[in-house]
Amino acid sequence: SISSTLELETVLKQIVEVVVEVTKGDACLLYLISETTDELILRASKNPHPRLIGRISIGLGEGITGWVAREKIPVVIPRNASDDARFKFFHRLPEDRYQAFVSVPITSKGKMVGVINVQHKRSKRYAEETIALLLTIANQVGGAIANARLYDDMRQKARRLETLSQVSETVASNRLIEDVLQLIVTMTAQLMNSKICSIMLVDQASGELRIAATQSLSDAYRRKPPLKVGQSMSGRAVQDHHPVYVSDVKEEDGYFYRDLAKQEGLHSLLSIPMLMKENPIGVINVYTSSYHAFSDEEVTTLQAIANQSAVAIEHTRLMEKSFEMQEALEVRKLVERAKGFLMASRGLSEPEAFRLMQRQSMNLRKSMREIADAIILAEELQRATQ
């Protein structure tokens, strides 16, 4: 039944169930080798709590589990497992409460895939048949895990391409820039299974990064004060024109809001600069709720999204400047026309007519356009009654 599905999480869950049934273990933990780092990540278990899935990482050679992964040799300890010289205590894993411990490597075509740990609360002399069966299971499921991972990778690539296409359509649409940025962070968060995704833009006047869009419902995150460019992780990404990755923001000294990260359950962070012709205009932040080592493909995809976002923002700014220039030209024409009426009707020189309009603008707290419109309207009404 394990080989009958390509859903990775289902495969891992089925493996744990089979191992527990065969060994009658009190706990079973399944670790997989990360595809981006030399670490083992807890991916499935029967005990401890499911919330630890994805949050526990072990380096190769670290503890009994890391030793088994590095040496590709099983370890069987019938009693006092925590007394083993290779044992390492993890404060979130209650491994020291178990007396008996079996750890076997999972391989596929000679390549290390992961490790299965079986634990018993009381001392237990494992029969040779049980260990042999456990090794057989580990060898057989390696291929199923590899196939499920391949399927998962292909599905992720399809999702990335679909998201990039959707972002392109959004950027090319006639939506307001605020709506465009909001859609981008929402789509990015869905793609990356992100706890929080945000876009921060550079305020050129103050040199600060301010949150422009986020899909997070957290008021605490939305109210985060601005950051100076160069400060914190996001500011570094903008300053260095290069992505910045933090494996755990709660433990990172350079991360300013560690208390907020703990409150919101944030773990890993990737900050991608938004560049327009090498000019940084902002940053996209992607936070995960558990440890996540971003792959090269994920970084490339996020950089593409960041660049398209930068294009959308720059296009909007150019449109606004063009509108402002057209508006300024229109106002100048109206002012010139109004000055002409004042010069003709009151015998004023051009500077005198302009100063009169300026005084009226200041005294009445009206714009020069409003003053000019009023003068032109009055002149036209006077002509109409003559």
Rank of each mutant, 00 (worst) to 15 (best):
T107D: 04
A144M: 05
A261W: 07
I131H: 00
G347R: 06
P94M: 07
S345M: 14
A213S: 09
E336N: 14
L30W: 02
P50I: 08
S290V: 14
Q263W: 08
G63H: 03
A306L: 01
Q308W: 03
T214E: 06
K72V: 10
P48G: 09
S268P: 00
E352Y: 06
E350S: 14
Y31S: 02
R332D: 14
L183T: 12
K224N: 09
G207S: 02
V246Y: 00
K333H: 12
F341R: 15
R337Y: 13
A374L: 14
S165H: 14
V238I: 09
A138V: 00
P225W: 09
R222L: 11
P226T: 10
L133S: 09
I53V: 09
R369Q: 15
S3Q: 12
E336R: 14
G254T: 12
L270I: 12
L266A: 03
S1W: 11
E278T: 09
F256T: 05
R346S: 13
V75Q: 00
S165W: 07
R222E: 05
V229D: 08
V167C: 01
P105D: 01
F256Y: 14
A384E: 15
T136S: 11
L266D: 01
T214V: 07
L32D: 00
E178F: 07
T163S: 06
L329I: 11
I41R: 05
R159W: 04
F354K: 12
I53N: 02
I177K: 06
A212Y: 03
Q215E: 10
L60R: 04
S45L: 12
S34E: 04
D84P: 00
G114S: 07
F323K: 15
Y287I: 02
I196M: 02
Q215R: 10
S45M: 12
D83M: 10
A220Y: 11
V141R: 00
L201F: 08
T5L: 08
G347V: 06
S82I: 04
A27W: 00
A374T: 13
N117R: 06
L270P: 01
M192D: 04
E7W: 09
S232D: 14
A148T: 03
V335K: 06
T23E: 01
D259W: 09
V75T: 01
G235Y: 01
E264Q: 09
S45F: 05
I41V: 15
S173D: 05
T170R: 04
D38W: 07
V68L: 04
M362N: 11
P78A: 01
R70M: 09
I33H: 05
I73N: 11
T170C: 08
